[in-house]
């Protein structure tokens, strides 16, 4: 067992670093830059039952310490993902991959999850009940404990692989949602998805994003994400995957100290395509600096007496 080795729902990860869904496509753009097999795993682009183009452009805006996106779950649909994307992925990535699933009804989530559950490469199903950029689905499932329970329970019943509920920070009580997911049978919780925000174009006086609002990510959200990971990890007895503004090996340690068993890296990949490689390479040195022998030793220490 290496110093960075961790475990997520019974699957060993060589290290806890997982590029987050929507920032890593299906992996090939990055596979041309470095060997993505060095990653713990990665969560591929959010997949829905039917193909989606997503929202009109502009879909991207910037702010101090981060960015807003309103892509709106653009993806070719689950059948094309299985027929075209996964075979290509298999050539460049040889570890279990995290399948990110989104939907607009419980049936959608169940259908897509079931299809991806049958794929050998898929190690986990990360159920996105927290997309802020689609209407009549996505985040609306993740902001009400009963709805969250219903979706996660239905998916859990339908699949064999570990189910990770990906939660939204756009709630008043994250613990209530997390506990509902745990009660529904979730094998792990991942959080946070992006925070709802907006920008206005000063020249036109109108919202900068065509969708009006978008999801905030990047270093600006890190303290909020850390707080929610901390609260959630103390409230549930299943692993928590922490994400939100993670940019450095130091951020990874903080997330793990807050209670994360693994850490997803999102927006950082978009500005530095080598971000995850660098974090993995930096981890041993940064661990030495703080006297950490093994990463699993620090999971949740911030909340322990």
């Amino acid at each position: 067992m290496g110093r960075l080795t961790t475990e997520l729902c019974g699957i060993t990860l060589d290290n806890p670093i997982i590029p987050a869904s929507g920032t890593f496509g299906y992996g090939y753009e990055f596979a041309q830059l470095y060997d993505i097999n060095m990653l713990g795993t990665f969560s591929f682009k959010g997949t829905t039952k039917d193909p989606r183009f997503g929202n009109p452009t502009p879909r991207i805006a910037e702010c101090a310490g981060g960015m807003l996106n309103a892509v709106g779950l653009q993806n070719p649909g689950v059948e094309k993902v299985i027929q075209e994307e996964l075979p290509k992925l298999k050539e460049v990535f040889h570890k279990p991959v995290m399948a990110n699933v989104s939907g607009f009804s419980v049936d959608d989530y169940v259908y897509t999850s079931r299809r991806l559950d049958q794929e050998e490469q898929v190690g986990w199903l990360e159920i996105n009940i927290s997309c802020p950029n689609v209407h009549g689905g996505g985040m609306s499932f993740g902001t009400d404990p009963d709805c969250a329970y219903e979706v996660i329970h239905a998916v859990r019943e339908a699949v064999t692989k570990p189910v990770i509920a990906k939660l939204s920070p756009n709630v008043t009580d994250i613990i209530a949602i997390a506990k509902a997911c745990e009660a529904a049978g979730a094998d792990a919780i991942s959080l946070i998805n992006t925070m709802l925000g907006m920008r206005i174009n000063l020249r036109t006086g109108k919202p900068l994003l065509a969708n009006v609002t978008g999801g905030l990510s990047g270093p600006a959200v890190f303290p909020v994400a850390l707080r929610m990971v901390y609260q959630t990890a103390r409230a549930v007895n299943i692993p928590v995957v922490g994400m939100g503004g993670v940019t450095s090996a130091e951020d990874v340690l903080e997330m793990m100290m807050a209670g994360a068993a693994a850490v997803e890296v999102g927006a950082a990949n978009l500005v530095n395509p080598y971000a995850c490689q660098k974090i993995i390479e930096d981890l041993p040195t940064v661990m030495d600096r703080y006297g950490i022998k093994h990463l699993t030793d620090i999971i949740g220490i911030a909340g322990k007496e």
Binding site: T23, F30, T57, R59, I60, L270
Partner: peptide, 22 residues
């Protein structure tokens, strides 16, 4: 021209519809 997130195909921030799909 389009507002971009990454500029290298990862984020889907700059997609357009064409006769041959997105």
């Amino acid at each position: 021209e389009e507002r971009m997130g990454c500029g290298f195909g990862a984020c889907m921030g700059c997609s357009i519809q064409t006769k041959n799909g997105p």
